[in-house]
C-alpha cells in the first residue's frame, strides 16, 4: 500500500513535468500542424538557463522561495526568448512550404540545440544546485514524501491553470483559438496571426523552461541531451490526450507518467523508454484522435 502511494506520487510528479512540455507541443500543433521537435531541447535550455541564473545571482547561498521564483522566472524568460527566435528564424520563413520541409527543419533545429548545447555547456552532466532548503523527506509513518515532488506538482498545476485561464478567458486566448481553428479566416477577421503564432511558441517554451528548472531541482543532473527523451514522451502524451487539445495533453501526460512509474515499479524497468512509443502506436492504431480529441475538437 505504502509502495503504491509512493509510485503514485512519483508518477504524478513525472506526469506533471511531461504535461508542462506536452502543452507546448499541443499548442503549436494546434495552430500550425507542426511537430516542434525542438521543444524538448527548449526544455533543456530552460534547465541550463536556470542553472546559470542560480550561479550568476548566487541563489544557492540563500535558499528561499524567492530564489526559486527568481530562477523560474529567469529560466522561463530565457526559454521563451529561445522559442521566439526558433519560430522567427526557422519556421516562419517556411510557413508556405510543404509540411515535410518544416518537419525536417524542426529535426534540424532540435539537433542543433542539442549539439550546440554540448559546445556551450559542455557534454558532461552538470549538478543542479538546490535553491530550496528542505530537511529530508516528509514522513508519515512509513510513507516518505519528497517535498520537491509535491512542489513540482503544485507549481505545474498552477502554471497549467494559468494557461487554461488565458486560453479560455482572455481575448488573447480567443485569438489563439481562432487561429488554430483556421489560420486564414482568423487573419481575415483582423487577428494578427503571425504575432499569435509567435506568442504561442513563447508560451509553450516558457512552460517547458519551467519544467526544466523543476526537473533540475528534483533530479539534479542536467546535460545537453536531457531533453530528447522527455520531449518525445511529452509528444506521445499530447497525442494520447488528443493533439491540439490543451486539457487532453495534461490528461495524457499524467497517464503516461503514471503508467511509466508502474512499469518501472512492478514490471520491467529496462523497457521504460519503449513504453511511450508502444502506447503511441497503440493509440494511433485504435483511436488516432486521442482520448479527448474529437473530429473537430476545440484546439489551441
Amino acid at each position: 500500500m505504502i509502495e503504491l502511494i509512493q509510485h503514485l506520487i512519483n508518477g504524478f510528479s513525472m506526469g506533471s513535468i511531461y504535461a508542462l512540455i506536452a502543452l507546448g507541443y499541443t499548442m503549436v500543433f494546434g495552430i500550425l500542424q507542426l511537430i516542434n521537435f525542438a521543444h524538448g531541447d527548449v526544455y533543456m535550455v530552460g534547465a541550463f538557463t536556470g542553472f546559470y541564473a542560480i550561479h550568476f545571482f548566487k541563489l544557492a547561498e540563500h535558499p528561499s522561495w524567492l530564489s526559486l521564483a527568481l530562477t523560474l522566472v529567469v529560466a522561463m524568460i530565457g526559454s521563451g526568448c529561445l522559442g521566439w527566435c526558433i519560430e522567427r528564424l526557422a519556421y516562419r520563413p517556411l510557413r508556405k512550404s510543404p509540411r515535410i520541409n518544416v518537419l525536417i527543419t524542426a529535426v534540424g533545429v532540435s539537433l542543433f540545440l542539442e549539439f550546440a548545447g554540448q559546445l556551450f555547456f559542455g557534454a558532461d552532466p552538470k549538478f543542479f544546485p538546490q535553491v530550496l532548503s528542505f530537511e529530508g523527506d516528509w514522513s508519515f509513518n512509513e510513507l516518505k514524501i519528497n517535498p520537491l515532488q509535491v512542489l513540482i506538482f503544485v507549481v505545474s498545476i498552477f502554471l497549467m491553470l494559468a494557461l487554461d485561464w488565458m486560453i479560455y478567458r482572455t481575448r488573447l486566448g480567443r485569438a489563439m483559438r481562432a487561429t488554430s481553428f483556421n489560420l486564414e479566416y482568423a487573419s481575415l477577421m483582423g487577428i494578427p496571426t503571425d504575432q499569435v503564432i509567435s506568442l504561442t511558441f513563447v508560451l509553450g517554451s516558457t512552460l517547458a523552461g519551467a519544467a526544466g528548472v523543476l526537473v533540475g531541482l528534483t533530479y539534479p543532473k542536467i546535460d545537453p541531451l536531457m531533453g530528447v527523451l522527455p520531449g518525445l514522451k511529452a509528444f506521445v502524451a499530447a497525442v494520447l490526450g488528443g493533439i491540439g487539445n490543451v486539457r487532453g495533453a495534461v490528461l495524457g501526460a499524467l497517464i503516461l507518467g503514471l503508467s511509466e512509474e508502474f512499469l518501472v515499479g512492478y514490471g520491467a524497468p529496462t523497457f521504460r523508454d519503449a513504453l511511450a512509443f508502444g502506447l503511441l502506436i497503440m493509440i494511433l492504431l485504435f483511436k488516432p484522435t486521442g482520448l479527448l480529441g474529437l473530429k473537430r475538437a476545440e484546439k489551441v
Binding site: Q33, L34, I35, R99, I100, L103, L232, F235, V236, V239, T270, F271, D273, A274, A276, F277, G278, L280, I281, L284, L285, P288
Partner: peptide
Amino acid sequence: PSLRLKGDYLAIVTLGFGEIIRV
C-alpha cells in the same frame, strides 16, 4: 500503422519503432 497515418505522425511512429527496436 502507416495504413492510417500521414506525414508527421508517420515520422514519429517510425522514430518510435526505431527506439523500441533499440530498447
